[in-house]
């Protein structure tokens, strides 16, 4: 049932009176098991006290802080997810008394860490860093016997999950994973963990944007783009990325931006169309892979 049975506060409406007995017949019978609703409402204990006692106040406060930290585009959907996750985490919903297996525990920890990582977009650096910290703690607090800490295996697993959920083709992100993964039994310090996560999220966004770019270039009927145009765009991108390197960063960023501006990009595409002959068309996968390779070339390998 998607909609909650919501009795209206202004009970004067006839329609409501008709609905109510149908919705909650139990409440109208004298039930020794639990106090009747009307009685609870009549007690002097204020709503405020009630909310504080059952923990609603604290829960909403935490939720509101998370909303403000993450500033999501759709805060209501964000809240729905937030509470859903909270419900899953609470032991009450776990059901059976049997302790979950080690594998399941690991999966739960990964899920929780992922959830924290996604709460804020990576461009909100403070919020993102906080969440990375929390995710790191989630994962490190694993085995009781072993020393706390994050091992390379869990870290790699998390990277894979992030990439898989990011809907980027596997062959596109695989080179990145090879670069930033740690060995299975290596301990992963927080710094490496944070850098790895950040790189991963940035790459995913980069790939998504490259995908959007390709969509503009492609012929909708054939789902491929002209190789000359595609290559020209990639070359321009490469040039801009190289310009972005070096010591005088701000000036370089401006230069990179101007190289990628619509006019110079159009010029490059036009030149490419004139200069070369049409070759084999370029597919989406190829374009994404090449674009991602430009990015990944800039990533420093771990260790």
């Amino acid at each position: 049932m998607a909609a909650l049975p919501v009795p209206l506060p202004s009970a004067k409406m006839a329609a409501v009176d008709k609905r109510r007995p149908a919705v909650a017949p139990a409440a109208s019978f004298p039930d020794s098991g639990r106090p009747a609703v009307s009685q609870a409402a009549a007690t002097p204990e204020s709503d405020e006290d009630f909310l504080r006692q059952v923990g609603v106040t604290e829960m909403l406060r935490a939720a509101l802080l998370k909303v403000l930290e993450a500033r999501p585009e759709e805060p209501i959907a964000f809240l729905a997810h937030y509470f859903e996750n909270m419900g899953l985490r609470s032991p009450a919903s776990g059901g059976a008394g049997e302790p979950p297996g080690q594998l399941l525990l690991q999966q739960q920890r990964l899920g929780r860490a992922l959830w924290h990582l996604r709460l804020a977009h990576h461009s909100q650096r403070t919020a993102f860093n906080n969440n990375v910290g929390v995710a790191y703690e989630c994962l490190s607090a694993s085995g009781r016997k072993k020393k706390p800490g994050l091992d390379g295996r869990t870290y790699s697993e998390l990277l894979k999950r992030v990439c898989r959920d990011g809907e980027a083709p596997e062959e596109v992100v695989a080179p990145l994973l090879r670069k930033i993964q740690c060995r299975d039994h290596e301990a992963v310090p927080l710094g490496v963990f944070r850098a790895g996560m950040l790189t991963c999220f940035v790459l995913l966004e980069f790939v998504a944007r490259a995908g959007a770019l390709f969509q503009l270039l492609e012929d909708p009927a054939l789902a491929v783009a002209d190789r000359r145009v595609g290559q020209a765009v990639l070359d321009t991108l490469e040039g801009a990325l190289q310009a972005g390197d070096g010591p005088a960063a701000p000036a370089r960023y401006l230069e990179a931006g101007s190289r990628l501006g619509p006019d110079s990009l159009a010029l490059a595409m036009d030149r490419a169309l004139g200069a070369r002959r049409p070759g084999a068309p370029m597919t989406r996968e190829e374009f994404l892979e090449k674009a991602a390779a430009l990015f990944i070339a800039k990533v420093k390998p771990v260790g």
Binding site: A80, E84, S90
Partner: peptide
Amino acid sequence: ENKEDISQYGIARFFTEYFNSVC
């Protein structure tokens, strides 16, 4: 207004359903 619901399903579940229905 639905205090009975939360004793049965829990607060988090209640809020989840509420915000989902808003969405």
